[in-house]
Design a protein around this nucleic acid. Structure first.
Length: 281
DNA sequence: CCAGTCAACAAGGCCT
DNA sequence: AGGCCTTGTTGACTGG
């Protein structure tokens, strides 16, 4: 919208794509195709005239990933061999949260009864390590757990409470963990999509810039041509007909005709592009 | 629920 | 080989 408004050139530049652009669906995001989805978008990108930046192409801020590294370690962690024994391993959120000096307590209070019940059945790291210091080890889901979650996510990217509960039970996780996993999964899918879209729009922009440059150049040439024939300057441009090969204005070359345009075919064979509005800047 | 963020952790590269 | 650093991933949290 803003783009069209901003460019009041009267030229309508267009860009089209030969193959499907389609906002890549969730189905494309199965199991982190990494950049594959992006390359797919790039591969399907076949610039041609006529583009409307329709509603389905949405501009996004590319909040490029920001990774915080080398931060001070906020937690102590006890080292429990991943995969040892239980499928399920985790630190108690109770202990973890309560150990925060920064006061991350809210979520703790939110732990519902249902979750507590499930938690009772879960093996977990003890609330305190042997030094009596609260510990928190980051949970790493096992392959099986991840696979099941992914599978479930493919079916529905959001869960109702029942589904959440069932999945949690199946995975031997707390419902809250399942919920968080889905939240993160949705967010990261979206982020990936945003990156793909951003890349796509960059390419659009490049193509349109090129096209615009080309058209500007053509316009200059036409203006120069027009100036070279001042006699016709006062004539309405729309009524002029010019043959690009012989560069003659229709009708005028033949003085015998009353209608200056009668000599040339009624259909201007000027530049097809103008009869085919396609451009937008 | 989402966006933003933190932080644990893994993996890869570089240097000694 | 192993220590350190950087970078990417991901589970978890907060605030709106």
């Amino acid at each position: 919208m803003g783009i069209d408004d901003a460019c009041n050139t009267g030229l309508v530049l267009g860009l089209g794509f030969s193959s499907t652009l389609g906002t890549p669906s969730k189905a494309n995001n199965n199991q982190t195709p990494k950049k594959s989805s992006m390359s797919m978008a790039a591969a399907s990108f076949e610039p041609s005239l006529t583009l409307a930046l329709s509603g389905e192409i949405y501009l996004v801020n590319d909040n490029s990933k920001k990774i915080d590294v080398n931060k001070g370690v906020g937690y102590l962690h006890n080292h429990e061999e991943p995969g040892s024994g239980d499928l399920y391993r985790q630190a108690s959120p109770h202990s973890a949260v309560s150990s925060f000096s920064s006061g991350r307590v809210k979520r703790e209070r939110d732990l519902s009864c249902e979750e507590v019940e499930v938690e009772k059945n879960s093996s977990r790291v003890s609330e305190e390590d042997e030094d009596g210091v609260n510990a928190r080890k980051k949970l790493r889901l096992t392959k099986d757990q991840s696979a099941l979650l992914e599978e479930s996510f493919k079916q529905h990217s959001t869960l109702n409470p029942k589904q959440k509960q069932a999945l949690a039970k199946q995975l031997n996780l707390r419902p809250r963990q399942v919920e968080v996993w889905f939240q993160n999964r949705r967010a990261r899918t979206k982020l990936k999509q945003t990156e793909v879209d951003c890349e796509f729009l960059k390419k659009c922009c490049e193509t349109l810039t090129d096209e615009n440059r080309r058209l500007q150049k053509e316009l200059q040439e036409l203006k120069a041509l027009k100036l070279a024939q001042p006699f016709y300057m006062h004539m309405p441009a729309a009524t002029l007909t010019m043959c690009p090969s012989c560069e003659r204005i229709g009708g005028v070359s033949d003085g015998s005709s009353k209608n200056p345009f009668s000599v040339l075919p009624s259909k201007p064979h000027f530049y097809n592009r103008f009869t085919n509005p396609s451009a937008a800047c």
